[in-house]
Nucleic acid binder design. Structure first.
Lengths: 237, 237
DNA sequence: CTATGATAGTGTTGAAGCTACACTATAAAC
DNA sequence: GTTTATAGTGTAGCTTCAACACTATCATAG
């Protein structure tokens, strides 16, 4: 370890900049969307980017992510998870920048987004149809975030976070169908979700043509170890 | 975003220090061990710590982790995976330090470790019996690394990385028993591992009292999508 | 007041996979 | 040739799951 003798003083050496970027997901008309901001200035001006910013010296990474999230969407107390730290040399032409990426999931009924001085525009993009030009290595970050989210949705109760406070069982089934990319059996789905005891019946219904839709609420406290409980299928090839 | 006007220049603002710490696992006499170094200087002098160091400006995070790993163990080209980035304020009394933690798995037959000027001692500790006093928040990092490793071993072929180049099927079974904490059926294990087609028979045997032990080699290329193939059991409560 | 259409279930069969345990086979040492 | 270890095979019973047919409920349309 010749390069780092013990006289090493971490307060003096050259340091990288560190940003916290938050990939914010939501469900809009039954489809998974992600929030992007359009950059106003160099570098990558005009390109779409994941919202984020440099960390302050007096806040934790998680606090920085929460701050970013609130700045962009106005919401707090949502699902927030660290994704990965990206640190290739040359990802930012200005200087060495590390990016600690987070994933956030915002409920379908809380999607008001705020404009910002720094950006030309802010928009929800369906993950199936992202813009072509993405700033920095944010395309890579996005791809990783989406794949991580997909796989976590398969074996956790994260899918519930995408739904509004109250929802019908068929809406939940529809989300699982989207994620898994296949049709599920209605009867079997009812059976399994009821057995899981994760839902609480509400007195609410939603009326229309046929029998009124019964609405349910997700009870995370019944999930015991929080997220890791409901899996549609046991097998995982 | 008042705090970060577009005149913001990331080359000027105050920046945290960033270390890369590598939790290095190996198998010694059928038990999972982790490498720790004993610090020589302030802060936490005399305490055991995860090997690591500050990143250089011209190397990627992964390269820094690889460098650390090689400095400590002399090996390259082993399993190496980013774990998590720890960034609480005040984790290091000297200054603001972020730590990007990696997990490495070193084969059972490559465990020579090197001394260092910076440390009093370097040692493999069984994960069941770690030292009481651990530097910084490294106890938290260790706990997270161990739990992540355990759960990944359950649904990936990572366990193979813990074994030497060639090994017997009963040795592999023993590792799974250790990880899962229960006895497995010999016949069923043979059947399942053979079906998976992950092992290649070698001409080697190891002789002793009874019938010679046939030795096998792991064929990662048969695993298709690399690590995520062999799971002992399909269910995952 | 009945037909329709939507949600909300129940029942059942057959296939597949897994567990447990008994049994066989092989090869070397003693 | 007996012992001891690895290296398997065979199978009954259990559980889970997919598939699909069937029933029940409730409001509106007519």
């Amino acid at each position: 370890m010749q390069e780092r003798p013990e006289t090493y003083d971490p307060t003096r050496y050259e340091r990288p900049s560190v940003t916290v970027d938050v990939v914010i997901f939501t469900l809009i008309s039954q489809e998974l969307h992600v929030l992007l901001v359009q950059r106003r200035h160099w570098p990558f001006d005009g390109f779409w980017a994941i919202p984020g910013g440099f960390i302050n010296m007096n806040e934790s990474l998680r606090d920085a992510a929460r701050r970013e999230l609130e700045e962009e969407t106005g919401v707090r107390d949502v699902y927030l998870e660290q994704l990965y730290t990206f640190g290739e040399v040359g990802r930012d032409p200005r200087t060495r920048v590390l990016s600690v990426a987070y994933i956030a999931i915002v409920r379908a009924d809380a999607q008001k987004i705020r404009a910002s001085d720094e950006s030309l525009d802010v928009r929800w993009f369906p993950v199936r149809d992202l813009p072509e030009h993405i700033a920095f290595d944010h395309d890579e970050i996005l791809a990783y975030a989406i794949s991580r989210l997909r796989s976590k949705l398969e074996y956790t109760t994260l899918a519930f976070q995408l739904l509004p406070e109250v929802f019908s069982i068929l809406e939940l089934k529809h989300i699982y169908e989207q994620i898994l990319g296949e049709k599920l059996d209605k009867g079997n789905f009812y059976r399994k979700i009821k057995e899981s005891d994760l839902l609480e019946e509400t007195t609410l219904t939603r009326e229309g043509r046929g029998r009124p839709t019964r609405l349910w609420r997700f009870r995370p406290e019944r999930a015991g170890d929080k997220q890791f409980v409901f899996r549609w299928r046991e097998d995982r090839k």
